[in-house]
Design a protein around this nucleic acid. Structure first.
Length: 425
DNA sequence: TCTGGGGTCCTAGGACCC
DNA sequence: TCTGGGGTCCTAGGACCC
């Protein structure tokens, strides 16, 4: 009788117990550069030439003392042997997709968390594939390495937060599985501020209350957590206990709440025309992306950041959701004085398309109230978008943003687009 | 930590309604 | 007219992620 009961409990537990894999690319951007050009293998390499700061670095560069965020001029000065490359985001996205497709050979539910990270739900795969979870992970690692020339680190655990801890444990090319036996030690060795979802603010509040490690956190009870913290922290606390509250979301990214375009330029400037040109260009680029997903914003947010890092933000509600640059630029020009003060030095400018809604349901109101001009623009944009689709990059721009794209001085990073671009209007 | 670019989610507080 | 209680929706801003 007892035996039956415990067996039942055991089965039940097996059913609810999840197995989550977290995969993380090792020095991903640089690794892709090496995969593209094998002559770079084993050399100190960094990317970020286009923005004057180190974005990613190879382990060889790290060994020399280069760090993320270091100014490129400093790298060239102090480490003349380091190769400095511009970022090639199109390639990173391509390799990223191929990497995730390899994981999909084994798992159905794969969440692309960022360009170089994914989660996969491996629950039950050990039985269906007749391999241990570790063996499956080894296959993934090997195939990514053999087929793409990239190195990845994998963590396996019962929740996303624990899988993140596991993948951080040994890098590069690590493979760590958190088991019942190793759980306690792993948690004890995880400082609270390194937990996924715990930022510097919350880390301070935890430390003040005597919580220094993930283990300390798990030893507090629910009431204590609720009394002192909010929902996100409670979710992390549960995940640390092995209760999976974050699902693995395998749906491909196709919805956005907002889309943003910003750029920093140096030197800082108070030139209103330059700032307007930057903002117009951002609107154009963001609108192209919005149309690609058949989305249109209900609000447009403008922002300028001053040299002293204060930001000025202004939100403009739109009468009708629209992803048409001509309309949004109209709003921009009307509202620019709300963010701009003459004489103030600005270091970056940006826009956000907020509260994006699907355009399918907007067609009717668009045609009913916007009139001929907008309809013509809509058809022109359809052609522009088709060209972009065909060439895999934007081909046609508004003439008004011509100078921002061809700027050789401030922030001009589009040198490679120049020759092939047509100009519109 | 001397600070790029692109996102998400949560929450406090106000407006508005009954 | 200074006055209850409670609900919803919206907004601005904070915090966090890679």
């Amino acid at each position: 009788m007892f035996g039956v009961f415990t067996k039942y409990l055991h089965c039940n537990q097996m059913k609810s117990e999840k197995t989550i894999l977290h995969m993380d690319g090792d020095a991903f951007f640089v690794a892709v550069e090496v995969a593209k050009n094998s002559k770079l293998r084993g050399l100190p390499v960094v990317t970020g030439a286009e923005r004057g700061m180190v974005t990613a670095l190879s382990y060889e560069a790290k060994a020399l003392g280069v760090v993320r965020g270091m100014p490129i001029f400093k790298v060239k000065q102090a480490f003349p042997s380091v190769l400095v490359l511009p970022g090639d985001y199109a390639s990173y996205a391509r390799y990223s997709g191929m990497m995730f497709d390899i994981v999909r050979r084994y798992a159905d539910e794969v969440e692309e968390y960022s360009i170089d990270e994914c989660f996969a739900d491996m629950t039950g795969l050990d039985r269906t594939l007749k391999m241990t979870h570790r063996e499956i992970a080894e296959c993934i690692q090997r195939e990514v390495s053999d087929e793409l020339g990239l190195s990845v680190t994998i963590g396996i655990a019962t929740t996303k937060v624990l899988a993140k801890i596991a993948s951080k444990y040994e890098k590069p090319h690590g493979l760590t599985e958190i088991t019942q036996h190793s759980l306690r030690v792993m948690l004890a060795n995880t400082p609270i501020e390194t937990l996924w979802g715990i930022g510097p603010r919350v880390a301070v509040r935890l430390r003040v209350r005597g919580v220094y490690s993930a283990l300390d956190f798990t030893q507090r009870d629910t009431a204590w957590v609720r009394r002192n913290f909010a929902k996100p922290q409670e979710a992390i606390w549960q995940e640390l206990q092995g209760v999976a509250v974050y699902p693995v979301n395998g749906a491909k990214k196709s919805t956005f709440g907002s889309m943003q375009r910003t750029r920093t330029f140096s030197p800082a400037t108070s030139d209103a025309n330059f700032l307007l040109g930057q903002l117009e260009r951002h609107i154009e680029d963001a609108c192209m992306k919005a149309r690609h997903y058949n989305l249109a914003p209900k609000k447009l947010m403008l922002y300028l950041r001053t040299q002293s890092f204060a930001s000025v933000v202004h939100i403009v509600p739109l009468e009708i959701p629209s992803a048409s640059p001509s309309i949004l630029i109209g709003y921009l020009r009307k509202n620019f004085p709300n963010v701009y003060t003459a004489g103030v030095q600005y270091r970056s400018a940006g826009i956000t398309l907020c509260d994006l809604v699907g355009t399918a349901c907007l067609q009717e109101s668009l045609f009913a109230s916007e009139g001929d001009i907008e309809n013509k623009f809509a058809s022109v944009h359809a052609h522009i978008d088709a060209l972009e689709e065909k060439h895999g990059k934007p081909m046609v721009y508004l003439a008004s943003s011509h100078h921002t794209r061809h700027a050789s001085g401030r922030g001009g990073d589009d040198f490679e687009r120049m020759d092939s671009n047509l100009l519109f209007l």
